[in-house]
């Protein structure tokens, strides 16, 4: 019986299989490692993004608060401006600083304005008074 060649063949085969299994295992491990790496990376990115979102959200809120505070300051300044533009206040200052100002005579006043049609519609009186002067009276909106 010729047993040897068969044995050798089996031995060769098993050696080949063992080599192949080790390679496959290594490959599988590498793949698994890669897979874990990807998961870890995704997780990291997810955490990072979440952190950024939270930070951005916090920044948004802070900016919103800042805007609200600035809005309130603007509202206050607007009212202050209106208080200062009150004639009684201006008159008091004219007297206080002895400015000697007086109202202009008609004809000394020139007005120039760049208005949108809507704004123009909303300014009824003074503009009409000057129109009256140039056209000799008449129409008013």
């Amino acid at each position: 019986m010729n047993i040897q060649p068969g044995k050798l063949k089996r031995q060769r085969k098993s050696t080949q299989t063992a080599g192949a299994t080790l390679g496959a295992r290594l490959a599988a491990m590498v793949k698994f490692g890669l897979f874990l790496g990807v998961i870890a990376a995704v997780l990291n990115i997810y955490i990072y993004l979440n952190q950024r979102i939270t930070e951005t959200d916090r920044a948004i809120r802070k900016t919103e608060q800042e805007i609200a505070r600035t809005d309130r300051e603007i509202a206050q300044l607007r009212i202050r401006r209106e208080q200062l533009s009150r004639w009684e206040h201006i008159r008091r200052k004219i007297v206080q600083f002895n400015l000697g100002l007086r109202e202009p005579a008609p004809g000394q006043v020139g007005r120039m304005a760049l208005l949108t049609p809507r704004q123009a519609q909303m300014v009824p009186l003074e503009s009409v008074a000057s129109a009256r002067r140039s056209s000799g009276g008449g129409h008013r909106n």
Binding site: E103, P104, A105, P106, V109, E126, R132, R133
Partner: peptide, 11 residues
Amino acid sequence: TRVLRHLNIPP
């Protein structure tokens, strides 16, 4: 007198 001045309506 003052309103006419303000409205720029000349005499």
